[in-house]
Design a protein around this nucleic acid. Structure first.
Length: 674
RNA sequence: GCUGCUGUAGCUCAGUGGUAGAGCGCGUCCUUGGUAAGGACGAGGUCAUGGGUUCAAAUCCCAUCAGCAGCUCCA
């Protein structure tokens, strides 16, 4: 007797031995057809798996409607892709081929490297394999046999993976499909016929096991869906998302420029982009004032000595611009043929004095704190600065506004007592909340980085750490949205709270961060005099709610799809004359808007109205004010909203009032890209 | 930094071992048009840079620089 319990709680009993498929058949022929695999007591099993007799087992039958079905089908598709590649190319070594968000990839090594030109052939071969519809057969082998199987197949990566990655598994599973056999945990759909529609997307390099020192493989990215319609919709979504790319919009709207002659990863803010940045800085400054911050200015460079004390030099030397060395030593360099390495050693040893382009603002702020004797009555001290820092990012990593070599942090350092820590962290979070709220950005995630309990790399008193970690949790909780707690993600000097968003192609970027620091106050010997008339050590909080102006604006361009809210729009409105006959009235209206402090321009070209409107729409101007003879006569403008279209004629004063209200309220307009 | 792809007019891109192309934009003129492209004419390019192969290179090869995708890294 075999009995199974179904997810709805019902019990089914069978006299003879039954497979998962038999159970599905007994429920309905439609289910039998749609069934992909089964799950017994939460363990995936094949459809032909024979259910053990005896005690009732919990059985789920998975169809494409179940959330995990798509991922499994995609993984099956990865096998099909690998098989196709092996049919086309000789000597293919397979590495890993997992499902990822939105698709899957397979890492392979080919003697004769693959290019995108091979895609049509691979896709054709995949179509053939799918048409064959041979079942995915699960084969289980004891450990030693499994290694032998991989050796026979000459799949060295698989051998290594079993020997190292799967060292604890006694039995290993393979899936076979015709001539193709691959080490795989499963599950799979019963056969490739279940794959609906697929497409190869791109090819890129990837290191074996993610280790830079290991060989580099080729990673084939692809995606698959149960229906062609779903695939088409997905591809269209990708195309739509690309139109929001801040690199394209930034160029098209003239927001910023990156120039070869200036240098990689160095942003030139054009007037329009500068305007947006200035407005954001003004906005945040206003809230800094309210929260009792003091704004400071500090230089872009500092002595090596400063960064030796802070620990940034030479420890992070690789990711910094080279130091600015004294003239004297430079000529010595030239005369003696001294190598860069030697110079670097001399600097670390203190033989050479030089300056560093600052990689962080904290050392400068610390020296402001240390410049005066501080009392507990002065604390907390909150020093803020839109401080520009420079970091030598790897060239392959630089791009757009999201990863640059020079950027301005909306930085601040708070010097607080242990007792004040919790409240100040909450204050920092409050700022983040205000900013994201004002932008209408809800789609961000929060991570609290905690100590790795097994590591001893952390500085500071463990008891204080626990207090700080708890304070971080409590501060994060004030956002009122779920956050993750990541042990081991803390900096060595203290726990932190990070805010992460995604860009238009799904890449994650860290924006704001709030970090507790026990280390720097110690390194710099910071003190304040307590109520007990004794010196005490303050705790530092580093915080940058935007992260950097560059990255934040990059993300913001994509968030708004280039269509900024009125208060941020460099050009808030444009006056369009119906014909040149209305130019005088148009200029008059323009003056009135300007006098009211609004940023408007006039389009007085001898173009047709439709053409001017089109230009205005494409340049993302929030409002257009159309003026013709009728408006001149009535003292009106015909207002056109970029999102809603024609709003009809209203008096000029009313239009101005509408603008001012919208600016004051910082209304967030709907997104739309074109 | 690594792997692959790319670099042609202000922008988007076509092109090919033998005198450099389109659309948009720009300029001039015509047109005076009421809610997403009116018309004509014209200007504009050391084909990223530096080497090499060749009678001949924008085209083929090498290097450099830059961009894109991914990997790695990210105080």
């Amino acid at each position: 007797m075999t009995s199974v319990k179904l997810p709805d709680g019902s019990l089914k009993e069978f006299e003879n031995a039954v497979s998962v498929k038999d159970v599905a058949k007994s429920i309905g022929s439609r289910l039998a057809k749609d069934a992909l695999w089964g799950e017994i007591d939460r363990q995936p099993v094949e459809l032909d798996y024979e259910i053990p007799a005896g005690e009732p087992v919990n059985l789920r039958i998975i169809t494409r409607k179940d959330p995990e079905a798509l991922a499994t089908m995609r993984h099956s598709c990865a096998h099909v892709m690998a098989r196709a590649v092996m049919r086309i190319k000789k000597g293919v070594q397979l590495a890993f081929g997992p499902t990822i968000e939105g698709g899957f990839y397979y890492d392979v090594e080919c003697k004769d490297p693959l290019t995108e030109d091979d895609f049509p052939a691979i896709e054709q071969e995949m179509a053939k394999i799918i048409a064959l519809d041979e079942p995915f057969e699960r084969i289980e082998r004891p450990r030693e046999d499994a290694i032998q199987v991989c050796k026979d197949l000459r799949q060295e990566f698989k051998v290594e993976h079993i020997e190292t990655g799967l060292a604890d598994d006694d039995t290993l599973s393979f899936y076979q499909q015709g001539e193709f056999i691959d080490l795989c945990r499963g599950p799979h759909v019963p056969s490739p016929g279940k794959i609906g529609a697929f497409k190869l997307l791109s090819i890129a390099g990837a290191y074996w096991k993610g280790d830079q020192s290991r060989q580099q493989l080729q990673r084939l990215y692809a995606t698959a869906f149960f229906t062609q319609a779903d695939l088409d919709a997905h591809l269209e979504l990708l195309e739509e998302a690309k139109k929001r790319d801040h690199r394209l919009l930034g160029k098209r709207l003239g927001l910023f420029h990156i120039d070869d002659m200036v240098g990689q990863g160095l942003i030139l803010w054009t007037p329009k982009g500068s305007f947006i940045r200035q407005k954001l800085q003004d906005f945040i400054s206003e809230h800094l004032n309210r929260q009792g911050y003091d704004q400071v200015f500090t230089p872009h460079i500092g002595k090596l000595e400063l960064y030796k004390t802070s620990g940034h030099f030479p420890y992070y030397q690789e990711s910094q611009y080279s130091p600015l060395v004294d003239r004297e030593y430079l000529s010595k360099l030239a005369d003696d043929g001294c190598t860069c390495g030697q110079l670097s050693n001399m600097m670390s040893d203190g033989e050479i004095e030089g300056y560093l382009l600052k990689p962080m603002n904290c050392p400068h702020h610390i020296r402001i704190y240390a410049a005066e004797q501080r009392s507990y009555r002065d604390l907390p001290i909150r020093l803020s600065e839109f401080g520009t820092v420079y970091r030598w990012e790897q060239s392959g990593e630089i791009g757009g506004l999201t990863r640059v070599r020079g950027f301005t942090q909306d930085d601040a350092h708070l010097f607080v007592t242990q007792e004040q820590l919790g409240e100040e962290l909450v204050g920092c979070i409050e700022l983040v909340k205000i900013i994201f709220g004002a932008m209408g950005m809800e789609d961000y995630s929060v991570r609290v980085g905690l100590r790795d309990p097994d590591s001893s790399k952390y500085v500071g008193d463990p008891e204080n750490w626990s207090l700080a970690e708890q304070a971080c949790r409590e501060a994060a909780a004030t956002l009122g949205k779920p956050f993750s707690e990541d042990p081991g993600e803390a900096a060595f000097y203290g726990p932190k709270i990070d805010f992460v968003v995604k860009d238009c192609i799904g890449r994650k970027w860290q924006l704001g961060t709030v970090q507790v620091d026990y280390n720097l106050p110690q390194r710099f010997g910071l003190e304040y005099i307590g109520a007990d008339n004794k010196p005490h050590r303050p705790i530092m909080i580093h915080r940058a709610p935007f992260g950097s102006m560059e990255r934040f604006i990059g993300v913001l361009i994509e968030h708004f799809a280039g269509s900024f809210p009125l208060w941020l729009a460099p050009e808030q409105g444009r006056i369009l004359t119906v014909s040149e006959k209305s130019e005088e009235y148009g200029r008059n209206v323009e003056k009135q808007f300007r006098a009211a402090g609004l940023r408007v321009k006039g389009d007085y070209r001898s173009e047709k109205l439709g053409s001017k409107i089109r230009d205005g729409q494409l340049e993302m101007v929030p409002y257009m004010m159309i003026v013709g003879p009728r408006d001149a006569e009535n003292g009106t403008v015909s207002l056109r909203d970029r999102c809603d279209g024609d709003l009809g004629a209203i008096p000029v004063a009313q239009a101005i009032a509408r603008f001012q209200k919208e600016v004051l309220e910082k209304t967030v307009r709907r997104k739309s890209a074109e």
